[in-house]
């Protein structure tokens, strides 16, 4: 389904100003600021998955591999007791994750459909067991990050990562930039070919495109951004842990993407906030929250055919 730009614009104009002002009202309550930060980080991750699944038609159950890799990579390449530069390490981590994605994508993208789901899952599980079984990487407990990076650009520092409100704004900025980037990407010439491949790969080959290369490029981009989200997660909590790599992480991200409206990109934010909102409120109401949550998610997915984004668009269209 082609999502229309107007609803997306409404969403952007509603969500981001609100998110910008919110910390002013939550000044005393760093708990909520941190909670919202972590949801935004995961929304960024879901967004990168949404691009792959919804826009490129590449269904993966191994995306969490890159989420976890973002964290572990930071631990591996940064010195333990020295503050490194946040932006420089963002660049490093995205580049290394991209290189890993290039290799894995090269193997994974030779398959499609159910086979691709199985192979991505296999790679993710291999990575999961590699990190959770190795003593050097802290096994099941993971590893601590003792020193957070500093964020200066040419000697000017805007964010202090230890300050929850600052970190909140950094993540909000990241989410906004990622959304803008994906909008440009979808509109681009590259995006035209990606849309064509998604709708009719055979036709696109017959027109002379090497569809493998376009899929590989998309996979690399989405994986690098997924790793960036994992890197932010690690900086927020000060640790890395194999559960970041678990297939359940990929699974919940996939559910959030479907809930939000697959392929709409901005729907990833909606899906993640609704999912996490439900999770948070139900968890406090009942011990059996998972059961209710599952039922609610199933109901919503069945009710909103194209996710929350699709539903909103239908509502807005009716009124015009």
């Amino acid at each position: 389904m082609l999502f229309n730009k107007r609803t997306e614009r409404y969403f952007i104009w509603l969500f981001f100003p609100l998110a910008l002002l919110l910390p002013l009202f939550l000044e005393q309550n760093t708990f909520y600021v941190s909670k919202l930060t972590s949801v935004m980080i995961f929304a960024l991750f879901v967004m990168s998955l949404d691009y792959l699944v919804g826009r490129c038609g590449l269904i993966t159950l191994g995306h969490a591999m890159f989420y976890g890799l973002g964290g572990y990579l930071f631990w591996m390449i940064a010195p333990e007791y020295e503050a490194v530069n946040f932006w420089v390490y963002t660049f490093y981590i995205c580049m290394i994750a991209a290189a890993v994605a290039l290799v894995i994508g090269f193997l994974v993208l030779r398959t499609s459909g159910i086979y691709m789901i199985m192979i991505t899952l296999a790679f993710a599980q291999m990575t999961f067991y590699f990190f959770s079984d190795s003593i050097e990487f802290g096994g099941n407990d993971g590893l601590f990050i003792y020193v957070k990076p500093e964020t200066s650009i040419f000697g000017l520092s805007f964010f202090d990562l230890d300050n929850p409100t600052h970190f909140y704004y950094l993540c909000l900025l990241s989410l906004f930039n990622t959304l803008v980037f994906f909008r440009l990407l979808i509109r681009s010439r590259f995006g035209r070919v990606v849309d064509a491949i998604h709708e009719n790969p055979g036709r696109t080959t017959a027109l002379g495109y090497n569809i493998f290369l376009f899929r590989l490029m998309s996979y690399v981009i989405a994986s690098a951004l997924g790793a960036y989200a994992g890197y932010l997660f690690t900086l927020q909590y000060g640790f890395v842990n194999p559960s970041m790599l678990a297939w359940t992480t990929s699974g919940s991200a996939l559910v959030m993407s479907i809930l939000g409206g697959m392929g709409s990109i901005y729907g990833a934010v909606l899906g993640t906030f609704v999912y996490e909102g439900l999770h948070y409120s139900l968890e406090h109401l009942t011990e059996h929250w998972l059961l209710f949550m599952g039922a609610l998610i199933i109901a919503m997915v069945m009710l909103f055919k194209n996710g929350i984004a699709g539903y909103m668009e239908k509502l807005l269209e009716k009124r015009v």
């Binding site: 440009l184 035209r192 696109t204 490029m217």
Partner: peptide, 17 residues
Amino acid sequence: VAVQRRMGGNFNLLRSR
């Protein structure tokens, strides 16, 4: 889609289609 292939810039990630 058919024309763009031979016009180049198919891997241009930011230039509008």
